[in-house]
Amino acid sequence: MTEVVIDQRAADRPQPGKRASLVVRLTRIYRTEIAIAMAIVVLLVGISFWSPYVLTWGNLANIAQAAAPLILMSLGVFLVIATSGIDLSVGSTFSLTGMVAGLCFSAALPWPVVCLISLGVGLAVGAINGGLVTVVGLAPFVVTLITYAIGASLSFVITNGHSIAIADPNFWTLNGGEMIPGITNFVLFCALAVIALECVLRKLVVGRWVFAIGSNDKAARLLGIPVHGVRFGVYVASGVAASFASLLSLSYISNSESTAGANLMLQAIAACVIGGASLFGGTGSAIGAMLGAIMITVIQNGVNLIGINSFWQGTVTGAVILVAVLIDRATKVRS
């Protein structure tokens, strides 16, 4: 029957009214990101047993250079994924931007003008994606599958499939120059983009809206959040990010090819997933997406250095995604 209830509640229950200290909160929020960062270190050390060269400055700089375009692209894709959408068109946008830039260089336009025109490609593709998703109300997967297909084909059409060598003697400075002495531009761009985006997502109301829409778009609408506007914005951001990534890469490679972005879309989505984003939306972080992109690049670099046939790259990346997702899930279940 009625037992005596010993009141231990006050002692055991977490005390409401107290908020954990900032450091504790940050380690909690960035648990996944910290885990990935450590995994990257472990991976680098692991590779160094086969190939000590991996940990030299020269190679780390190679990794950073190779990772930069993927990082920028992943940030854009992450924004879309956080709203529970998907952007399959970024690889095509990357290629198409490169070809448009190549044509502009052939017409001997100054490189800053070329950059502006080329960024318009991403802007246009993003606006088409965003418009079809929000105004027409089509599913993001379908919409971006369409723009992916069209973009991929157009990047062959406009130069008839020929690659274009960039002759402009100054264009390399976009990637390799030092606007701030001592920091190469591509590092600067990536750092700025990641920090800015992370601040927007955490500290600006519009950033919280991105997650709110991914979490529950009906509730978001009833809470007065401009769901269509934000959705449109993330697709545009994703398109522009892909274009900028393409320019950075072009500035380094100086050769524009129609297939340049073919593999990048899957890698960018994988980077977001490794970084802790859920494809259902509402979770993840810009830092996570960046770390995911770095991890993928480290794997590619390692596969090359160890001398494994590069056909295996995809298999290794797939295995790493699996491990990352399993670890992420395990840490979430336990907490």
Partner: peptide, 22 residues
């Protein structure tokens, strides 16, 4: 569940969401 709670966002965001818009 369908139209109220933002399930993947912390309680903080759930509470202040309306005030932000207002």
């Amino acid at each position: 569940a369908e139209k109220g709670i933002l399930a993947t966002l912390p309680i903080l965001d759930n509470i202040v969401a309306a005030a932000r818009v207002a």
